[in-house]
Design a protein around this nucleic acid. Sequence first.
DNA 1: GCCAACGTTGGC
DNA 2: GCCAACGTTGGC
Length: 135
Amino acid sequence: MSFWLLKSEPDVYSFDDLLRDGETIWDGVRNAQAANNLKAMEIGDEAFFYHSNTGKEAVGICRVTAPAGPDPTDATGRWVAVKVAPVRRLGKPVSLARMKAEPALADLQLVRQSRLSVVPVRPEERDAILRLSEG
DNA sequence: GCCAACGTTGGC
DNA sequence: GCCAACGTTGGC
Protein backbone atom coordinates (compact mmCIF):
# COMPACT_ATOMS: atom_id res chain seq x y z
CA MET A 1 0.00 0.00 0.00
CA SER A 2 1.49 3.29 -1.10
CA PHE A 3 0.62 6.89 -0.54
CA TRP A 4 0.65 9.59 -3.23
CA LEU A 5 -0.11 13.21 -3.93
CA LEU A 6 -2.17 14.31 -6.90
CA LYS A 7 -2.12 17.87 -8.16
CA SER A 8 -5.00 19.62 -9.78
CA GLU A 9 -5.71 23.22 -10.53
CA PRO A 10 -8.93 23.84 -8.59
CA ASP A 11 -10.21 26.09 -11.38
CA VAL A 12 -10.12 23.01 -13.59
CA TYR A 13 -11.04 20.25 -11.13
CA SER A 14 -11.21 20.77 -7.39
CA PHE A 15 -11.64 18.45 -4.43
CA ASP A 16 -15.20 19.75 -4.14
CA ASP A 17 -15.75 18.55 -7.69
CA LEU A 18 -14.54 15.09 -6.67
CA LEU A 19 -16.82 15.07 -3.62
CA ARG A 20 -19.70 15.98 -5.88
CA ASP A 21 -18.85 13.40 -8.54
CA GLY A 22 -18.08 10.55 -6.14
CA GLU A 23 -15.43 9.22 -8.53
CA THR A 24 -13.37 10.57 -11.39
CA ILE A 25 -10.88 9.39 -13.95
CA TRP A 26 -7.45 10.96 -13.42
CA ASP A 27 -6.57 11.53 -17.05
CA GLY A 28 -4.54 13.99 -19.04
CA VAL A 29 -1.17 13.15 -17.49
CA ARG A 30 1.45 13.65 -20.19
CA ASN A 31 4.69 13.29 -18.30
CA ALA A 32 6.63 10.04 -18.27
CA GLN A 33 7.60 10.20 -14.62
CA ALA A 34 4.07 11.03 -13.52
CA ALA A 35 2.74 8.23 -15.74
CA ASN A 36 5.13 5.77 -14.10
CA ASN A 37 3.74 6.81 -10.74
CA LEU A 38 0.20 6.21 -12.01
CA LYS A 39 1.24 2.75 -13.18
CA ALA A 40 2.62 1.97 -9.72
CA MET A 41 -0.72 2.72 -8.04
CA GLU A 42 -2.84 -0.09 -6.70
CA ILE A 43 -6.50 -0.18 -5.78
CA GLY A 44 -6.84 1.06 -2.23
CA ASP A 45 -3.79 3.31 -2.36
CA GLU A 46 -4.55 6.76 -1.01
CA ALA A 47 -3.39 10.18 -2.11
CA PHE A 48 -3.47 13.74 -0.92
CA PHE A 49 -5.46 15.96 -3.25
CA TYR A 50 -3.43 19.12 -3.77
CA HIS A 51 -4.65 22.36 -5.30
CA SER A 52 -1.91 23.86 -7.48
CA ASN A 53 -1.67 27.47 -8.63
CA THR A 54 -4.76 28.61 -6.78
CA GLY A 55 -4.59 27.63 -3.13
CA LYS A 56 -1.29 25.76 -3.16
CA GLU A 57 -2.46 23.45 -0.42
CA ALA A 58 -3.42 19.86 0.23
CA VAL A 59 -7.15 19.86 0.89
CA GLY A 60 -8.29 16.26 0.98
CA ILE A 61 -7.59 12.58 0.65
CA CYS A 62 -8.71 10.33 -2.16
CA ARG A 63 -8.45 6.63 -2.84
CA VAL A 64 -7.49 4.73 -5.98
CA THR A 65 -10.51 2.79 -7.24
CA ALA A 66 -9.13 1.52 -10.56
CA PRO A 67 -5.53 0.80 -11.58
CA ALA A 68 -3.78 2.41 -14.51
CA GLY A 69 -5.54 1.80 -17.79
CA PRO A 70 -5.69 3.52 -21.17
CA ASP A 71 -6.23 7.28 -20.95
CA PRO A 72 -9.42 7.96 -22.94
CA THR A 73 -8.18 11.47 -23.74
CA ASP A 74 -5.07 10.07 -25.44
CA ALA A 75 -5.48 8.98 -29.06
CA THR A 76 -2.00 7.49 -29.21
CA GLY A 77 -2.70 4.92 -26.49
CA ARG A 78 0.62 5.62 -24.83
CA TRP A 79 -0.64 7.31 -21.71
CA VAL A 80 -2.54 5.95 -18.76
CA ALA A 81 -5.15 7.08 -16.26
CA VAL A 82 -6.42 5.78 -12.92
CA LYS A 83 -9.73 6.34 -11.15
CA VAL A 84 -10.07 7.94 -7.73
CA ALA A 85 -12.84 8.49 -5.22
CA PRO A 86 -12.91 10.96 -2.32
CA VAL A 87 -12.13 9.73 1.19
CA ARG A 88 -12.39 12.87 3.27
CA ARG A 89 -11.57 16.51 3.43
CA LEU A 90 -8.60 17.42 5.60
CA GLY A 91 -9.53 19.06 8.88
CA LYS A 92 -7.35 21.98 7.91
CA PRO A 93 -5.70 22.47 4.49
CA VAL A 94 -1.93 22.11 4.58
CA SER A 95 -0.27 24.83 2.54
CA LEU A 96 2.87 24.41 0.51
CA ALA A 97 4.50 27.08 2.67
CA ARG A 98 3.65 25.06 5.79
CA MET A 99 5.12 21.91 4.28
CA LYS A 100 8.29 23.74 3.29
CA ALA A 101 8.63 25.01 6.85
CA GLU A 102 8.38 21.49 8.27
CA PRO A 103 11.80 19.85 8.70
CA ALA A 104 10.28 16.36 8.36
CA LEU A 105 9.10 17.31 4.87
CA ALA A 106 12.38 18.68 3.55
CA ASP A 107 12.72 15.79 1.10
CA LEU A 108 9.10 15.79 -0.05
CA GLN A 109 9.10 15.34 -3.79
CA LEU A 110 6.36 17.93 -4.12
CA VAL A 111 8.88 20.43 -2.79
CA ARG A 112 11.90 19.11 -4.64
CA GLN A 113 10.30 18.71 -8.03
CA SER A 114 7.44 21.15 -8.14
CA ARG A 115 6.42 20.50 -11.73
CA LEU A 116 5.61 16.82 -11.28
CA SER A 117 1.86 16.32 -11.03
CA VAL A 118 1.80 12.82 -9.51
CA VAL A 119 4.32 12.22 -6.74
CA PRO A 120 4.89 9.54 -4.10
CA VAL A 121 4.63 10.44 -0.41
CA ARG A 122 6.60 8.40 2.11
CA PRO A 123 4.79 7.02 5.18
CA GLU A 124 6.56 9.37 7.56
CA GLU A 125 5.81 12.29 5.25
CA ARG A 126 2.15 11.30 5.06
CA ASP A 127 2.04 11.20 8.85
CA ALA A 128 3.67 14.62 9.13
CA ILE A 129 1.18 16.15 6.69
CA LEU A 130 -1.74 14.50 8.47
CA ARG A 131 -0.49 15.93 11.76
CA LEU A 132 -0.38 19.41 10.24
CA SER A 133 -3.91 18.96 8.94
CA GLU A 134 -5.21 18.35 12.42
CA GLY A 135 -4.20 21.80 13.57
C1' DG B 1 3.76 39.04 -14.93
C1' DC B 2 8.09 36.97 -14.10
C1' DC B 3 11.18 33.35 -13.68
C1' DA B 4 13.19 28.74 -12.47
C1' DA B 5 12.95 24.01 -13.50
C1' DC B 6 12.35 20.73 -16.60
C1' DG B 7 10.82 18.26 -20.87
C1' DT B 8 10.75 18.16 -25.86
C1' DT B 9 12.12 19.23 -30.41
C1' DG B 10 15.05 19.77 -34.22
C1' DG B 11 19.40 21.12 -36.47
C1' DC B 12 23.84 19.54 -36.96
C1' DG C 1 24.17 11.86 -29.81
C1' DC C 2 24.74 16.70 -28.45
C1' DC C 3 22.83 20.97 -27.42
C1' DA C 4 20.36 25.31 -28.26
C1' DA C 5 15.77 26.90 -28.62
C1' DC C 6 11.40 26.69 -27.21
C1' DG C 7 7.14 25.33 -24.54
C1' DT C 8 4.91 24.20 -20.14
C1' DT C 9 4.20 24.06 -15.27
C1' DG C 10 3.73 26.19 -11.16
C1' DG C 11 5.58 29.07 -7.35
C1' DC C 12 6.30 33.73 -6.17
